[in-house]
Design a protein around this nucleic acid. Structure first.
Length: 291
DNA sequence: ATGTCGTCCCCCGGACGA
């Protein structure tokens, strides 16, 4: 049996954030890292530095905006697709899918959708529907699949410090939340929520109003596990220290640890018995400080 | 309405997207 650490990280500009990315890779050593918001053209991706850090990578760049990448420690991700089926004409670089380390990884950057209502919100919902349709086909294969990325959806009011000042925001709209619930209803496991059913977990703190300093965060970066993988979930967390560094992204890396090889044995229920764990312990673990 | 970033354009501060 072997352990597999998979992370998702909206880096908000890979060129501005390259030192932060390399420091994080060196310290946390994820086996697979899904990145969003590269904000770099295809030719501007810093592949040499990433290779030097011990990672293979594929990426889908775009000038100025969007952009996604999949990094793998000591391996080359085998690209499956770089657009959603039926939505190949999407002008934004928001999707990348690869097979690596024995799992199929989808890296997504779902549209923000603000201002709402308006064409940007309409685009968010259209993108979401294409993604939901494709996710269903991935789930039905029965293969080990992870859907990792910035979903730009706060699933419930338990996933935000206080919904009051965000009620009109696209991230909390009923349409956004309904789409996310319909995705989960296909059978996916929201890994962070499964590991910490009763905790406040945030992955994003905007740059405004000292939200980081006040821990006024949102949970919008998600890792969804297919049926074959959900019993293998051993741990999960948010690398909050990355958000506290100078010149940080407004997101923190969010990760899961899977134990490969337990899927065949665990036919009964979800492997970790975290539901029984006291709150104080889980809240500490949700904010891990690594050795 | 505001707050703060990163990026672009292209000459440096303002627009845009988040």
């Amino acid at each position: 049996m072997s352990r597999l650490k998979i992370a998702t990280f909206n880096i908000n500009g890979i060129r501005a954030r390259l030192p932060a990315l390399l420091a994080w890779l060196a310290r946390e050593s994820p086996d697979i890292a899904c990145l969003q918001e590269l904000k770099a053209a295809q030719s501007e991706f810093p592949i040499d530095e990433i290779r030097a850090a011990g990672y293979g990578a594929i990426w889908h760049g775009q000038k100025s905006w969007n952009g996604v990448a999949i990094l793998a420690k000591g391996a080359e991700p085998l690209e499956v697709r770089r657009a959603l089926p039926g939505f190949e004409a999407d002008s934004h670089s928001r999707y990348l899918e690869a097979a690596v380390h024995g799992v199929l990884v989808a890296c997504l950057y779902l549209p923000n959708g603000n201002p709402q209502p308006g064409p940007k919100f309409d685009y968010k919902l259209v993108w979401f529907e294409h993604f939901i349709k494709h996710a269903a086909s991935l789930f039905e294969t029965g293969h080990p699949v992870v859907l990792a990325g910035d979903y730009n959806v706060v699933p419930t009011d338990e996933d935000i410090y206080n919904p009051r000042s965000w009620l009109k925001d696209a991230l909390l709209q009923p349409e956004s939340r309904d789409a996310y619930q319909r995705l989960l209803a296909q059978g996916w496991t929201d890994a962070l929520r499964a590991q910490y059913p009763d905790e406040r977990i945030y992955t994003f703190w905007d740059y405004f109003r000292q939200h980081w300093q006040k821990n006024s965060g949102l949970r919008i970066d998600h890792l969804l596990l297919s049926k074959a993988l959900s019993p293998t979930l051993m741990d999960a967390g948010v690398d909050r220290w990355v958000r506290g560094e100078p010149h940080a992204s407004d997101h923190a890396p969010t990760w899961i640890m899977l134990e490969q090889g337990v899927a065949e044995k665990a036919t009964r229920k979800k492997a970790p018995a975290k539901q029984a764990t006291p709150k104080k312990v889980t809240s500490k673990k949700a904010t891990p400080s690594k050795p």
